[in-house]
């Protein structure tokens, strides 16, 4: 046992060091501020694009809290931080990253220091092999497609409730499967594909940490964020 102890410790250390980092590209990053606090968004990672990326943060009323280009750089050691001051407002915020998919691959998640943070939409790119958790906004049949790969959905008991390998249904390059989604349930998602999507524009909201899950206000998804006036400080 004396000999095994250090080995176990070594294994744990190694597995911790090589634990897979969670990155995902989604249509929106949703934050929930329970109490009015100063909170932060930290972009942590090496941005691979020379143009950087554009970040827009807005609330459910369409008010922009941040709207500017994040320049290219290596923020692995010192994150690029956005501070959102206390403002007597709480609730849901949505952030959108405009840029190359590789930016999302580079950014460490979660971005914020808030308790709740999910990545939502009907189209995702991820190379993550670990478990992801998600919730659905409304009760419906959810058809998931794995692009040139496979995925499966498990319920809270860990039972597989949808599996593209079992369903064996295809739509162009997507392997499809479906399940009946219900609010309030933390579903588990395991993917073996780079891209996956939810058909019929039904969004799901996911995270690799179940405790971070929440369902964002539906109103926030109706905001046409690309029409929010830009505050880019491009000095030309």
């Amino acid at each position: 046992m004396r000999k095994i102890g250090p080995l176990v410790l070594l294994c744990l250390t190694v597995s911790f060091c090589f634990a897979e980092e969670f990155h995902i590209s989604s249509k929106g990053i949703y934050f929930f501020e329970e109490k009015d606090v100063e909170w932060h968004i930290n972009f942590n990672g090496k941005i691979p694009t020379s143009c950087g990326f554009y970040f827009i943060l807005f609330d459910a009323n369409g008010k922009a809290l941040y709207c500017d280009a994040i320049p290219s750089g290596d923020y692995s050691e010192n994150p690029y931080t956005i501070t959102i001051p206390r403002d007597n407002i709480t609730g849901c915020y949505k952030g959108v990253i405009v840029g190359k998919e590789s930016v999302s691959d580079a950014l460490s998640l979660p971005l914020s220091d808030l308790k709740y943070e999910v990545y939502g939409g009907d189209y995702f790119a991820a190379s993550y092999k670990g478990k992801m958790y998600f919730q659905v906004r409304k009760e419906d049949t959810y058809v998931l497609g794995a692009y040139k790969g496979h995925l499966k959905v498990l319920n809270e008991k860990g039972e597989t409730i949808a599996d593209t390998r079992e369903t064996k249904k295809q739509e162009k390059y997507d392997n499809l499967t479906e399940f009946s989604g219900q609010r309030g349930i933390n579903y588990i998602l395991q993917i073996d594909c780079r891209y996956f999507r939810v058909k019929n524009n039904n969004p799901i909201f996911l995270s690799n940490i179940a405790e971070k899950l929440f369902i964002p206000d539906e109103k926030i998804d109706s905001i046409e964020w690309w029409k929010i006036p830009l505050s880019t400080k491009e000095d030309r």
Binding site: C51, A69, V98, W225, W226, K227, L230, T232, E234, R236
Partner: peptide
């Protein structure tokens, strides 16, 4: 200065013109 970096606002204008990002 000759600055060949296309400004981000070009994308947002295109998104507005084509009604979607």
């Amino acid at each position: 200065e000759l600055n060949l970096a296309m400004p981000w606002k070009y994308f947002f204008k295109a998104a507005e013109m084509y009604n979607g990002p």
